[in-house]
């Protein structure tokens, strides 16, 4: 390598380190704004003032879902939990298809003065495990997994499990 090329190489590496660390520092500094939602514990700790919009994320607590239909529009009450704290949520409107007990969701809205979270929009956050229905039923029937209580067991126990029909 000629000295000029060597100089360009070192200059480039120095620039790379500078850009990389600048980015890392900015990301660390802004990490609270880069977070898409707050969990119930973080919400309780921050205690956002009523009426201030934010996104609440967590798991729909099992046994907490209660839907009342008035004038054709459903209003659903449920609790969002992170396993320790939980926050009651009210939402009027049609929930996404994937909404169920034990499902991860992100609700957009604000706290009311009564300590409830009033959601204007509910998004479903689905898992990252893919398996046919048969495998899920197999795991459920053998008592190895209930989708209501968290993600499936270690993938190596099911990702090549034999099932009756694995076609579509």
């Amino acid at each position: 390598m000629t000295p000029r090329k060597k100089r360009r190489l070192y200059l480039l590496l120095a620039c790379g380190i500078a850009v990389g660390s600048a980015t890392a520092l900015s990301l660390a500094a802004f990490s609270s704004t880069l977070t898409f939602f707050l969990g119930p514990r973080e919400v309780l700790a921050k205690d956002p003032s009523p009426g201030m919009d934010f996104r609440l994320g967590g798991i729909v607590q099992v046994g907490s879902v209660n839907t009342v239909i008035s004038n054709g529009t459903p209003t659903t009450n449920f609790r969002v939990t992170d396993g320790q704290a939980s926050i009651p949520v009210t939402f009027t409107g049609v929930l996404p298809d994937l909404f169920r007990e034990g499902q991860g969701i992100v609700a957009i809205g604000a706290m009311t003065s009564g300590g409830d979270f009033s959601a204007s929009e509910v998004l479903a956050k689905h898992g990252s495990s893919y398996m046919p229905k048969d495998v899920e039923e197999n795991l459920k029937n053998s008592g190895k997994w209930n989708p209501k209580f968290g993600p499936p067991p270690d993938a190596s126990t099911w990702n090549d499990m034999a099932v009756k029909s694995s076609g579509s």
């Binding site: 990490s31 880069l34 898409f36 990252s128 046919p132 499936p152 993938a155 190596s156 499990m161």
Partner: peptide, 25 residues
């Protein structure tokens, strides 16, 4: 991994097992 996102986490991983059934993988 670094932040809470609506987007799901990684399904395929080279270190651990992939969380996907074989006929979908």
């Amino acid at each position: 991994q670094w932040w809470n996102t609506l987007h799901q986490g990684n399904t395929i991983s080279f270190s651990g097992g992939s969380k996907i059934y074989v006929t979908m993988l």
